[in-house]
Design a protein around this nucleic acid. Structure first.
Length: 898
DNA sequence: ACCGCCGGGTGCC
DNA sequence: ACCGCCGGGTGCC
């Protein structure tokens, strides 16, 4: 570890190893995120080269440390120049010019990725040895070898035939782990992670109570998450893979050493499954961990302000043991009889870097704060008035209004003090709850921001508002600002005073680049909801997200590792985990090793996620019990006897179906006529619901080879419709996932369009149906045209008739209603047409009901759900639910907060 | 750099 | 004195 004494940072080369915008390091061979990078897995060999000019630069390296090679085509002395930089981007020296001439050719043409490790570190002050390793795609190997040869260099072959073997020797931190040339499949990878998190749960049993402002009692696993998140935010731990060694900070993966401590990663990834309450946990975090485990100082309605004393029931993560869950009902306010001034002083004395009274600091921190007061108010009003469609969530809206009024008032107060700027406003009686902090750029004071920025997809924006509404105590005055809509307020000073600013990825992206206020504000924390959205590093929204200034950063995601290890990189960039914001280090240390099946690489990735991620599934356990304690499920099976007429029809169809299927059996063509078989079964199931669901039996089955193209097409379309409308979650036999863009082949098998097209592409003319081996062509695929909008039976009410099943259902519903008129029921069917039929008797019996099926867009679905969940009298008590549309991702609870 | 290289000084032994 | 040799100055790209 020599040469550390003179280490300095922020060298000239930072510009070349872009941290903030990883995709723009265009002067390096690392610039591309395209597929090539993933395939550059072959090791062409190694070479001992020389780094010169050490004495001109401050960047230093340790023995075995990884270095980056960066082309400098603009170098005035040599256009072939190759600069050498250490992990932090400080320049170490240059590659000797003769060697650089050879490398420049290779690097400029992307024939190989050239990576360096300095095996001895600094042995003299002028030059140093570097072990170069060449990685690339197989087809470029020859070109690389001959280019080196032309310059009089010969690559050393890598020991062992497997290129994977080379990683440990030349890329790894000198580890001697065994070689594992097996490439892990995605599935194995995923299992490895799930197992990892299972093991982890045992270590994460500490709990923390939410601040009193949070009304909804947290479940055990949510308290555990809150504890974990709080301790991550208050952590001063070194980031993963950093150690302190003899007074220096040392990265064990790259062997890089630094005098300064790398910044702690204050945040991480909350990757709980859907439905475990990530939103509530995040809200609790915002309210409960303002600074050092103290709750966010919020104002309570009625003028009382609370700066919660540290004696409250909130357990600081540093405290031992778990505190007990607080009462389910809100406690009476713990009224503070101190004067506001006193409470300010208390806060300050308890916690030096806590908060500063806003009216005190604003005056000098923002001398330009001369916006007209009127405008502020107006902007605010408009903001809450406009916003989303929001025909739903009326309650949230009214709450927002309430909040808005409060915010305006506070704003006015601050504003006044900013104007008179005498500084005497310190004793302002209003200021206790409007504590804020000195913003970045204010110069004098330590930065200590207040607001949390939440970024989410538009589709869940109202959900966030609802959840704040639902989970906060009613008398809490939270300054929540919806940064959305054409009249959103773009004043940094205003945003900096909020507790929470809520916006969407789209808004963030559209503001990005035009001097966005969101980039100017220093946020206490930034929360990315559905954080996997920023997977693509080239996307503008990813860049916008990365450029936000924040002290703490969180990613909420049900699926953090959606597709592959590649996705994790952006998350690490966002969390600013050094040194992975520079893609080269991520590639060398994590991604390529993992992709090549290197055990050490996988271990490192796991270690990384282990520290930064909390993930529970619905099946996870907390303290030995399932985290979700569902009420006991009771199943009542009611057998409905068909009427004589129905039974006759059913038996007729059954006999006919038997006849057809046994013919297929005899011919050995069951598989080939799979859709027909399914259709027969579906018809029988339909008949059990209602005879009108089934048309007259048409002779379609088994005649596939004797009809006109138009007839064939018609038949296939009706088959695919039948298959899809059966409500069974059809699987594509190629991807084994549920169908996307379903198409039907001439042999009547249904696949995802992309899947079957890929099959045909690869086999060309010889393509066979994966299910029945019949010849298939891409031109013969028929796409599913979507459901024909059949007229609902209400249109022809006169023709409506009941069925045994309908009668049975109505009997049960009426009985339930007579016992409890407010009871809510879900009526589920696989067949939306049956739901249509059911609407008639429901209406007749004066049931108020909602409906949710696959034809409805997200907004309509959300409305249907919230209407059903409305507890007020006269609200819908029945929901007609199509099995397929309601089967996944629907969160239906009744009696909120339970 | 305890090198290599360059260029000026120098010149029998 | 169109060379060799010596020794000081110098040094990434």
């Amino acid at each position: 570890m020599r040469g550390l004494g003179s280490r300095r940072f922020g060298g000239v080369s930072h510009a070349d190893l872009q941290e903030e915008e990883p995709s723009q390091s265009s002067s390096t061979s690392e610039s591309t995120h395209d597929q090539d990078a993933e395939e550059e897995n072959r090791c062409f060999g190694t070479f001992q080269g020389t780094i010169v000019g050490l004495r001109y630069y401050t960047g230093t390296v340790n023995r075995g440390e990884m270095v980056a090679l960066v082309r400098q085509p603009q170098n005035p002395y040599d256009r072939n120049a190759v600069m050498v930089a250490n992990v932090y981007g400080s320049q170490v020296g240059h590659i000797k010019k003769e060697l650089a001439a050879a490398l420049a050719f290779i690097m400029d043409r992307n024939l190989a990725r050239v990576e360096g490790v300095v095996p001895y570190g600094k042995t003299n002050s002028f030059t140093m040895t570097v072990t170069l390793t060449f990685w690339g795609r197989e087809e470029n190997q020859e070109a690389v070898h001959s280019q080196m040869k032309n310059h009089g260099y010969k690559l050393n072959a890598v020991k062992g035939s497997s290129s994977a073997a080379s990683w440990d020797r030349y890329g790894g931190a000198g580890s001697s782990s065994e070689i594992c040339p097996v490439i892990l499949t995605q599935e194995e990878l995923k299992n490895a992670f799930d197992k990892l998190f299972d093991d982890l749960l045992e270590d994460r049993t500490r709990e923390m109570e939410a601040a009193e402002a949070v009304r909804t009692p947290l479940l055990l696993h949510q308290k555990q998450a809150l504890y974990w998140m709080t301790s991550r935010e208050n952590s001063s731990d070194l980031p993963p893979f950093w150690e302190q060694r003899s007074g220096l900070y040392f990265n064990v993966l790259t062997n890089f050493g630094a005098r300064e401590s790398p910044e702690s990663v204050l945040g991480g990834i909350l990757a709980d499954d859907m439905g475990l309450g990530k939103t509530l946990t995040t809200i609790a975090l915002i309210l409960s961990n303002f600074h050092n485990g103290k709750p966010l100082p919020v104002k309570y309605e009625g003028g009382a302000s609370e700066s919660r004393p540290s004696t409250s029931s909130t357990a600081h993560p540093a405290q031992k043991g778990a505190s007990r869950r607080k009462e389910d009902s809100p406690k009476p306010l713990q009224t503070l009889k101190r004067s506001h001034k006193e409470s300010d002083r208390t806060a300050a004395s308890e916690d030096d870097d806590d908060v500063v009274v806003v009216s005190e600091t604003r005056a000098d921190q923002k001398p330009t704060a001369s916006q007209p007061k009127r405008q502020t108010v107006k902007l605010h009003d408009v903001d809450f008035g406009s916003s989303l469609d929001s025909s739903r969530s009326a309650s949230a809206k009214s709450r927002m209004k309430k909040g808005s009024g409060q915010t305006v008032k506070l704003h006015d107060v601050d504003f006044g003090s900013a104007l008179d700027s005498s500084g005497s406003s310190l004793d302002s009686s209003k200021s206790a709850s409007t504590k804020s902090q000195v913003k970045k750029g204010s110069g004098t004071s330590k930065k200590s921001p207040r607001p949390t920025l939440i970024i989410c997809p538009l589709s869940v924006l109202t959900n966030w508002m609802d959840q704040f509404e639902q989970h906060l105590r009613e008398d809490v005055q939270l300054n929540l600002y919806l940064f959305y809509g054409p009249d959103r307020c773009r004043q940094a000073s205003f945003l900096s005073e909020q507790d929470v600013v809520l916006t969407t990825y789209n808004v963030l992206t559209s503001e990005y680049g035009k001097n966005s206020v969101l980039q100017k504000v220093l946020w206490l924390r930034v929360v990315l909801d559905e954080g996997h959205i920023i997977r693509n590093p080239d996307a503008l929204q990813s860049k916008a997200v990365l450029s936000l200034n924040a002290e703490r950063r969180w990613i909420l995601s049900g699926t953090p590792i959606q597709n592959s290890v590649k996705d994790v990189w952006m998350l690490m960039c966002f969390l600013r985990l050094k040194p992975f914001a520079v893609r080269e280090w991520w590639m060398r240390v994590i991604q390529r090793p993992v992709m090549m099946g290197n055990k050490e690489g996988l271990k490192n990735l796991q270690a990384l996620l282990k520290v930064l991620t909390m993930r529970r599934t619905k099946l996870s356990k907390a303290n030995g019990r399932p985290i979700l304690q569902l009420p006991e499920k009771k199943v009542f099976l009611q057998k409905v006897v068909l009427s004589k007429e129905e039974r006759e029809r059913y038996e007729l169809e059954k006999a006919e179906g038997r006849r057809i299927i046994s013919r297929y059996m005899a011919d050995g063509t069951v598989l080939r006529n799979y859709a027909d078989v399914l259709a027969i079964l579906v018809r029988l199931r339909l008949l059990c619901c209602h005879c009108d669901l089934v048309g007259k039996l048409t002779e379609t089955a088994g005649t596939a080879d004797s009809s006109s193209p138009a007839e064939l097409r018609e038949r296939l379309i009706s088959k695919i419709r039948l298959v899809l409308s059966s409500g069974v979650d059809e699987e594509c036999a190629v991807c084994l996932d549920s169908l996307r863009q379903p198409v039907i082949t001439h042999c009547a098998h249904v696949f995802c369009k992309p899947c079957i097209c890929e099959v045909i592409q690869s086999k060309q003319l010889a393509a066979k149906c994966p299910l029945c081996r019949a010849n298939i062509k891409s031109t013969e695929l028929l796409e599913y045209p979507g459901d024909e909008e059949d007229s609902r039976p209400t249109d022809r009410k006169d023709q409506w008739r009941s069925s045994s099943k309908v009668e049975a259902l109505m009997t049960v519903l009426l009985k339930l209603r007579s016992e409890d008129p407010t009871i809510k029921s879900l009526v589920v069917s696989q067949f939306t047409k049956f739901l249509n039929i059911l609407e008639v008797p429901l209406r007749e019996s004066k049931f108020s009901f909602t409906r949710l099926d696959g034809t409805m867009n997200q907004k309509a679905r959300a409305r249907a759900v919230s209407e059903l969940q409305d507890p007020s009298p006269g609200s819908p008590t029945v929901m007609l639910l199509s099995l397929k549309a309601g089967g996944v991702g629907l969160n239906l609870t009744y009696g909120a907060g339970a």
